[in-house]
Design a protein around this nucleic acid. Structure first.
Length: 847
RNA sequence: GCCGAAGUGGCGGAAUAGGCAGACGCGCACGACUCAAAAUCGUGUUCCCUCGGGAAUGUGGGUUCGAUUCCCACCUUCGGCACCA
């Protein structure tokens, strides 16, 4: 799921020189990062240090990071979210939580199949080879993943349950088949969900090819049934950005549906957000595809209408939906009756009315809608104002723009005089009054419309989870009996990008029998959108080997819900919305509990190439982490990824900055390994050291909680500088020094786990493993400052600094400030007009 | 057009219940060590200056003793949506 193949060894980018020598021969205690890292990784694995099992005596913490797509090679797109997430999971673990931090692979999908078409490798072989490599790479990161919980979505043991979930959705009435115009990627040769079509040119999210429309019968999930609940975020701590994106995507609008009638008596249902403007409807507009068009068109208009329909059909969506396009339309020759005032109004067709939203027909109120206004002026249709703004008299013949704002209802007996505010929905008194009246009169009712569409799940491809459905000529569509799952993907298929699923072309695979009558029947040959696989992977991690259900309930009850989920914001309206829908649907089916699957979400930013462009093979700006690991070690890269950016922002990649964290870690190494004679530091030096240690601990602790990774590293860098200073002043050997070294390594452990372990066990001689130690507690008394240094401002400019006791009263601070030589000089004997002691942080004088 | 995020040194960034702008690091310069280099260590590094200071957090206003932080208007960049009735 994390963005796809950017698998290039961009040596050109990293070639800053040969790999630097790991053995600068001068010192025996030189820092051999690579060998040391490998040593600890092997030991941790052998000791199962990071195995997470149910333990009722400890609080649980389920930390989830988005699983990678099996493109073959890990790049910074993977490391950037994972390194800090891993550090935080380790931090939580040291805080006494039983932490589940699992990983798996999003293994189905188009790139695997495309590799097969291009290079003749079976997708299965390609995918599993990539997984082996990625697993190895993930291990070099020194992550604390519990590998015994690994899940791979392309394993039959996994997709058996993806199929099972499809059947549960079907049984719940949430999966259905429908013929409709769907988005089709001509390059990927498959349909796409609306979420997978991006940008102004409506291109395929994966390959960038502009999509086309096709009329196809496809499987959908009724995600719109949960639209209102998906708009509620009160139980989850998710970033505002994501909530806004999801809210806009769902696009809820409140209004009314009203039944108009044709002169011949056919019902025409329309949706409007402005029922208060019904009296200003001077014509109606149908989408060219509206089913009533043929029936109502008058004989003398037939040719014109037919021509317009043809033309609209030929145009692409992009052409049709271009905003600045001049509106066009054709009169049908038919008339409708406005139910609120029995006015006879003409019916037009125009392509600015879309069949895919609302009912495909609108009432046009040109006085109060920009689009209707433009249309009315072009075709000389009447304009009648029904909302009068204050202080202006609208005149339908002369007005130059539609008035969409507030005013008072006019020409709308019996509602004249009702104020219309700019509020939307029933909060607007005019809308409320009219809607209630419509309901009484039974010509309309309250209605809500969404931009959100049902989730199109069918894909005409091979490398995905089969849709476990069977078609029988007599009994229609029925699910495969659950005891026959999984429906296995056959290995022997032919790779031809025909636009049909390779499964359809397989000679025997689709032949089966009807589960109702036992007569010959056919399997569904489309496969599922891979977002179905990733909608529930967090559940499979709970018990990846469990075969009596998708997950073991005991594991579910202990670990769920996910406490923290980290990953990219690009999934805001895709995976992050699908998985919420999935969870809610399965909750209603009685399979899971709780309203939300993931309580807290945090998004990292995107790492761009050095040229400020998205990293991609075609741009040739991909940087491989492997080179940097070889050169600097994993700890240096992990810490650099945490230090270099605001994590939630990201930015263009720059390899040179890693020198900073590498240098810092070498300085840590040197401080701990240089033999130093115990000294005789003053009590003041030792007190200061201890204060700095506990101040840093407080800061690092808070920053971990708040995902402020860059300041964790800078805090530790500052403390190291303080420790060097203290050692120079003879602090080594003192109890304060001992505490400082111990706490330093504990704070270092989550971010640089290898070097911390090495120094902890081998230099300090403490018991293995540092990763089993408790996170230290801040000694607030020790962190307290004895004195305060306050700047003194005169007319807003800093002129002096005074030092006062930390517990000095405001009066004492004031007199100390007034006594300062600089202040005396500026005052020249006068009294200051004002003296402000601000929060014991600053003194401000006005003279 | 609508919605959202963000603008701070050469660079990444720090500091917002309103209180010392530029922490920490990269880069750069100079010095020490070295035959030399690398590594390491030390010093300096926002800009201007008449060496007293002065200016500066996208721009312009405002509130305040005091604004990177709050308010108003605008500019730029990025992301999303877009004839949604």
């Amino acid at each position: 799921m994390i963005p796809a193949p950017k698998v290039e060894r961009a040596l050109t980018q990293v070639k800053s020189g040969p790999v630097k020598s790991e053995t600068p021969a001068r010192k025996d205690n030189a820092f051999h990062s690579l060998a040391m890292e490998r040593k600890w990784q092997a030991k941790w694995e052998a000791d199962k240090l990071y195995r997470a099992v149910i333990d009722e005596t400890r609080p649980k913490h389920y930390a989830l990071t988005m699983l990678p797509y099996t493109s073959g090679d890990l790049h910074f797109g993977h490391w950037y979210p994972m390194a800090p997430s891993d550090a935080r999971a380790r931090y939580k673990r040291m805080n006494g939580y039983n932490v589940l931090y699992p990983i798996g692979f999003d293994a189905f999908g188009l790139p695997g199949e495309n590799a097969a078409i291009k290079r003749g490798i079976h997708p299965k072989e390609w995918t599993y080879k990539n997984i082996d490599n990625m697993r190895r790479q993930l291990k070099t990161m020194g992550t604390m993943f519990d590998w015994e919980r690994e899940a791979i979505t392309a394993d039959p043991e996994y997709y058996k349950w993806t199929e099972w979930f499809f059947i549960q959705l079907f049984k719940a009435g949430l999966a259905y088949r429908k013929m409709s115009p769907v988005d089709w990627c001509p390059n990927c040769n498959t349909t796409l969900a609306r979420e997978q079509v991006w940008g102004e040119d409506r291109h395929c999210e994966r390959c960038g090819t502009p999509v086309i429309k096709k009329d196809l019968e496809q499987w959908f999930f009724k995600s719109t049934q949960y639209a209102d609940e998906l708009l509620r975020f009160d139980e989850i701590d998710w970033p505002e950005r994501v909530k806004t994106l999801q809210t806009n995507w769902i696009g809820r609008s409140e209004g009314a549906s009203v039944i108009f009638k044709t002169e011949m008596g056919d019902d025409i249902e329309i949706f409007t957000t402005r029922p208060d403007t019904l009296w200003g409807a001077t014509f109606m507009v149908f989408s060219p595809e509206h089913p009533l068009v043929d029936k109502i068109t008058a004989p003398e208009q037939k040719d014109e209408v037919e021509a317009y329909k043809q033309q609209a059909a030929r145009q692409s969506d992009i052409e049709r939906e271009a905003v600045d396009k001049e509106k066009t339309g054709v009169f049908t020759g038919a008339y409708a009756i406005n139910p609120v005032n029995n006015e006879r109004i003409p019916i037009w067709i125009a392509d600015y009315v879309l069949m895919s939203y609302g009912t495909g027909a609108i009432m046009a109120v040109p006085a109060h809608d920009e689009r209707d206004f433009a249309f009315a002026r072009k075709y000389n249709l009447p304009i009648i104002p029904v909302i009068q703004p204050e202080g202006v008299e609208l005149n339908g013949d002369t007005m130059e723009v539609a008035h969409a704002g507030e005013g008072v209802m006019i020409n709308s007996s019996p509602f004249n005089g009702t104020p219309a505010t700019s509020d939307k929905g029933m909060k607007n008194p005019a809308i409320r009054a009219v809607t209630e009246w419509l309901e009484q009169k039974r010509i309309g009712k309250r209605a809500v419309n969404y931009r959100y569409r049902d989730w199109l799940i069918s894909r005409q491809r091979y490398w995905g989870s089969p849709i476990p459905m069977i078609y029988c000529n007599v009994h229609g569509w029925n699910p495969v009996p659950e005891d026959q799952l999984p429906v296995l993907l056959p290995d022997d298929v032919e790779w031809k990008p025909t636009g049909e699923s390779p499964l359809k072309l397989h000679p025997t695979w689709k032949n089966t029998t009807c589960p109702i009558c036992g007569e010959p029947a056919t399997r569904e040959t489309d496969t599922m959108d891979t977002f179905m696989c990733s909608s529930w992977y967090h559940l499979r991690y709970l018990s990846p080997d469990y075969d009596k259900g998708p997950f073991d309930e005991a594991e579910y009850n202990y670990w769920m819900p996910v406490d923290i989920y980290t990953g990219g914001i690009e999934h805001a309206t895709m995976h992050l919305l699908y998985t919420r829908f999935f969870h809610k649907a399965m909750r209603d089916a009685g399979i899971v509990e709780g309203n939300e699957p993931m309580l807290q979400l945090r998004n990292q930013g995107i790492i761009l190439g050095g040229d400020n462009e998205k990293m991609s093979k075609s741009r040739g700006n991909v940087v491989s982490p492997d080179e940097l690991v070889a050169q600097y070690g994993t700890d240096a890269l992990r810490t650099y990824l945490m230090f270099a950016y605001r994590w939630q922002e990201g930015g263009p990649w720059n390899s040179s900055g890693i020198e900073g964290t590498a240098r810092w870690l070498r300085r840590v190494w040197t401080l701990f390994t240089d033999p130093t004679q115990p000294g005789t530091a003053s009590a003041e030096t030792r007190r200061t050291l201890r204060r700095r240690v506990h101040q840093t601990l407080r800061r690092v602790t808070n920053d971990f909680e708040d995902f402020e990774f860059n300041t964790i590293i800078s805090g530790l860098m500052e403390l190291l500088n303080e420790m060097y200073k203290a050692r120079e002043e003879g602090a080594a050997g003192s109890p304060e020094w001992e505490e400082a070294t111990e706490l330093y390594l504990k704070m270092l452990a989550p971010v640089a786990p290898h070097i911390a372990e090495e120094l902890w066990t081998n230099q300090l001689g403490k018991p293995y493993s540092i990763h089993e130690q408790k996170w230290p507690k801040v000694d607030e008394a020790a962190a307290q400052e004895d004195t305060l240094e306050l700047p003194v401002q005169i007319n807003g400019k800093v002129r002096d600094r005074i030092i006062v006791a930390a517990d000095a009263s405001e009066a004492e601070i004031k007199s100390a400030a007034l006594a300062s030589a600089a202040v005396q000089k500026y005052l020249e004997g006068r009294e200051p007009k004002k003296v402000i002691v601000a929060n014991r942080r600053l003194v401000s004088l006005v003279i």
